[in-house]
Design a protein around this nucleic acid. Structure first.
Lengths: 123, 123
DNA sequence: GCTTGACCTGGAGTGCGCTCCAGGCCGTAA
DNA sequence: TTACGGCCTGGAGCGCACTCCAGGTCAAGC
């Protein structure tokens, strides 16, 4: 598939896909007769996984580390696993922080409602 | 209190505090005889609240909106409340996305462990 | 008197993750 | 044949949230 279709199907722009390739996050695909990128469908799986890492706040630098280990072969599995576990721990901590902050927000919002009811008794 | 102490007590750098003041996120404090900032302790509460907004991913632009409403007085309470509620909804959605991504990560990590056990039977 | 450290200003620089531009090529449809 | 959309490259530009710099002032301690 060409870059436009991959962009549509992966939810990224063609610009971003070329950028990912340039920095080494996406393997260079083969080219067709006129030099255009011709992607294998399997790259969609990789992109979906990268999106999960991105959504959870992993910096590109670290995705590159992961991609490099992956490219080095099967015997880096333990290292890749450790990298993901460390990331997961950070994400869990982040979620806990967000939940604590949500409680503060709830309290604040509740305070606004209470003040409003006080100014407009009977509502 | 001077900027250095406020920086220590609020967990920000003096640079950042001056930056916040410059962009209008922090009210300009009075100055002492030699022109140095002299903060009231109450600003710590405001900074702690801003930190919650920041931790939950609110852009500075929106914090400025909130600060502007606050500066306009009591009768903006409903608008401020609405702003916080909209933000809270976004944060909740973000947390749900993170939790879904955590499950994907868990599955991936579990896969690594399973593969490892398969290669090293008996462990 | 001198050093040290904290503070002051305006403005430049940084790191991240894109995003876009100029200028050009290629294949298809009208 | 000409227009059009999609693709190509290298490199510049952007928005965010700081972060730091140069060059200076000031107060306190030795």
């Amino acid at each position: 598939m060409k870059i436009g279709e991959l962009a549509r199907r992966s939810g990224r722009s063609a610009h971003t896909l070329r950028y990912y390739e340039r920095i080494g996050l996406l393997p260079p695909p083969r080219r067709d007769g006129s030099g255009q990128r011709d992607y294998d469908a399997s790259v969609l799986v990789w992109l979906a996984f990268l999106e999960r890492l991105r959504a959870t706040g992993m910096p590109i630098r670290e995705m590159l580390d992961y991609a490099a280990l992956r490219a080095r072969g099967e015997d880096t599995a333990l290292e890749r696993c450790a990298l993901l576990e460390a990331h997961r721990d950070r994400v869990r901590a982040h979620v806990r922080l967000l939940q604590a902050s949500l409680e503060v927000l709830d309290t604040k919002i509740e305070g606004y409602h209470a003040a409003h009811h006080e100014r407009t008794p009977g509502t």
